[in-house]
Amino acid sequence: MTTLTVAQAGALSTIQDFGRPGQAALGIGRSGACDRGAHRLANALVGNHPMLATIEVTLGGLALQTDEDVVVATTGARCPGTPHLAPFHLPAGETLRLGLPPAGLRTYLAVRGGVDVEPVLGSRASDILSGLGPRPLQAGDVLPVGTTPRPEPGVDVAPVPEPTGERLLVHVTPGPRRDWFDDAAWGQLTSQVYEVDSQSNRIGVRLSGEPLPRLREGELVSEGMVRGAIQLPPSGLPVLFLADHPVTGGYPVIAYVDDLDVDRCAQLRPGQEVRFTTTAVR
């Protein structure tokens, strides 16, 4: 069996797939890749089924070796030191090193055959909130690589837009608790430029800016949410939920980011600017 050995894990590298949908009623969050499109593309580039697991690398820093020749590809944030958006052969014994990406936050490393660790409740995803799935990678970890009967794709390079460090404009729609806020607060949410806080993680992107005032005091009975929810805790500073969001939350969700745009938000780096808009983007 082919294996990958982790030489350096970087700040946070986790195994991810499309998570554990369909179990939220049991208190089990979906989790999975924060940038699902990049995860899907990484698998496609090496000829994997989209459900196979990749490695999600946060701000580069991952180094690993293989004991047999493998085909790999990286997508998402472009790390110096390796080809990007194109499959390549990693020879046995050679070290693959992902440098610090100049823009974007999360890089997906797919290996042909997938990272074949034991699934937990139907998924190989690490959920940092619930602790389900494999723990984050550490130096010395040896990861089994699976096999795939699918043909290697004849793709050289995937021409997709890459994450940039520029201000991100994101389309939002009113959420279920829009009425906990007045029009002035809504106007503030959809016009001010927020900055991504360094406390952001796989659970959510925390934003700093002018706090929004609430119309109502008191607590909401906790209710279900999905990724893309923009929740406003008493601080008045929004949290945009990503893959490892809690299944239910007790603070009002004022707005939602369109599901497909959450992928782009998952590439926001601390310090980067973001603005929400109700006008169609693109």
Partner: peptide
């Protein structure tokens, strides 16, 4: 649907 999530006063249908 993908998921049905009951809570105290709500049900989220995904």
């Amino acid at each position: 649907v993908l998921d049905v999530v009951p809570a105290g006063r709500t049900i989220l249908v995904i």
